[in-house]
Design a protein around this nucleic acid. Structure first.
Lengths: 197, 197
DNA sequence: GTATTCACATACCGTCGGTACGTCAACTTG
DNA sequence: CAAGTTGACGTACCGACGGTATGTGAATAC
C-alpha cells in the first residue's frame, strides 16, 4: 500500500531507520541523555531528514513509544486469546504483560521515560489504547459473568496495572530467578482474591 | 547546630530558597521544561549560588525529591503509628499514602519525573528509604504474627507500592470524588485478601 | 520534455547546562 | 585588633543541543 514508487519506499526506509535507532538509543541511555546528532549519525541521515519525518525530539520518542506499546499489547492480546475461559484470559494476559515488560528497552521507554516525556495523562491515553484496555475489558467481562463481584472496574484496573508495571521494573533490577516466580505467585494470589469464592 | 554564625544562617536561607523555587517550578512544569535561569531568578540569587550548593540541575532535583519523599514518608509513618494493631497500621499507612500522593507536586516530582531523572534504581533506593520501607516492615510483621501467610514480602511490597502509585496518578487526573472512595475500597479489598481469613 | 513536488542535506541560531574566575564580607589567628 | 584566610556567593563565558530556514536534485505529474 505504501510500496508504490521508489520515493515512498525510500521514505519508509528512512523512517524505519530513525525509529530503530531512536529506540535503541532511548532505551540504552534514556531520553534526556540522547542527542539528536547521535541518532541521525547512527541512522546515516541528517537532522533535516529527522525533522522531515517528525516534528521534533519528543514526537520521535512518541512514535517509538507507540511501537513498543503496540508490541506489548499484541503479546498480551495473543496470550489472552490463547484461552477460552475469561478468567484464564485475565490471568494469562497479566502474566504475559509481566514477562514482556521485563525487557530493558520496554522498561526504560514505556515505564520510566514515557510518562515524564509526554506527561502522565498522554502516556495514560496511549497505554490505555495499547494494552490497559484489554485489562479493563477482561475485568468488565468477569464482573458481567459474575466471576468477580460487581464494582467499578477502572480503579481496579489502575491498581493492577500499576502493580504489574512496578513489579516488572523491580524484577529487572533485582532478578534472582526465584523472584520472578514469587512475583507471579503473589500476582496470582492478588488476582484470585478478586473472586467471590 | 547549623544556626551559629551569620554566614551559616544566610547559607541555609539561600539553600531553602533554591529548594523551594525548584520544587515549585519542577512541580508546575516538569523537570525538562524548567530552566536554571528561571529558578535562580525567582529565588533572587544567581547560578553561582546554585552551583555552590548543588553539583547541578539533577542534584537540585534530587534534593527536592528527597524533601518531598520525606514529607510523604512522615505522613505515612504517623498515620501508621496512630494504630496499635499491626494490621490497622498497614491499612492506615496505605490509605494515607494514597491521599498524600494525590497532591500535584508530589505526583510530578515523586512519581513521574523522579524515576526518569535519577534512573529507576536510584529512585527506588530513595523511595525505599523514605516510605516503601514501612510497607515492607509492616508486611513482614504481619507474616511473623501469622496474620498473612508466609511468603516473600518484597514482591508483595512492590506490587502494592506500584498499585498505589498508579492509582494516585489516576485519581488526580480523573477525579470525580467517588473515584477516591472506589479506589480506597478496591485497595482495601486487595489488602484484606492477603489475610488467611 | 517541462513543471512541480518532495525527500531530504546544509548552514545557522538561540537557549541552556555547566565552568572558570573574581569579589567582598565573615570567621580565625597571633 | 589587625592581618590573613575562608567561604558564599556574583559575573562572564563556553560548548552542546534542539530547532529552523533554505537550498537541491531526483522522482513524479502533466
Amino acid at each position: 500500500m505504501a510500496q508504490h514508487g521508489i520515493r515512498a519506499q525510500q521514505r519508509e526506509r528512512t523512517r524505519q531507520k530513525l525509529l530503530g535507532e531512536g529506540r535503541r538509543q532511548f532505551a540504552a541511555q534514556g531520553y534526556g541523555a540522547v542527542g539528536l546528532a547521535e541518532i541521525v549519525r547512527a541512522a546515516e541521515v541528517t537532522k533535516g531528514a529527522l525533522y522531515h519525518h517528525f516534528s521534533g525530539k519528543a514526537e520521535l520518542f512518541r512514535a517509538v513509544l507507540e511501537q513498543v506499546q503496540g508490541e506489548v499489547g499484541r503479546r498480551v492480546a495473543e496470550a489472552a486469546e490463547a484461552h477460552d475461559d475469561p478468567w484464564d484470559q485475565l490471568v494469562g494476559g497479566c502474566q504475559e504483560f509481566l514477562t514482556a515488560s521485563t525487557a530493558p528497552d520496554v522498561q526504560r521507554i514505556m515505564l520510566v521515560d514515557g510518562p515524564a516525556v509526554l506527561g502522565w495523562s498522554e502516556w495514560r491515553a496511549m497505554d490505555e489504547a495499547a494494552s490497559a484496555r484489554h485489562l479493563s475489558e477482561a475485568l468488565a467481562a468477569l464482573v458481567k459473568a459474575g466471576t468477580i463481584p460487581p464494582q467499578p472496574v477502572e480503579p481496579l484496573a489502575r491498581l493492577l496495572s500499576g502493580a504489574m508495571n512496578e513489579a516488572a521494573l523491580w524484577l529487572a533490577s533485582s532478578a534472582g530467578p526465584e523472584d520472578l516466580a514469587h512475583t507471579r505467585a503473589a500476582l496470582d494470589r492478588m488476582l484470585r482474591a478478586l473472586r467471590d469464592t
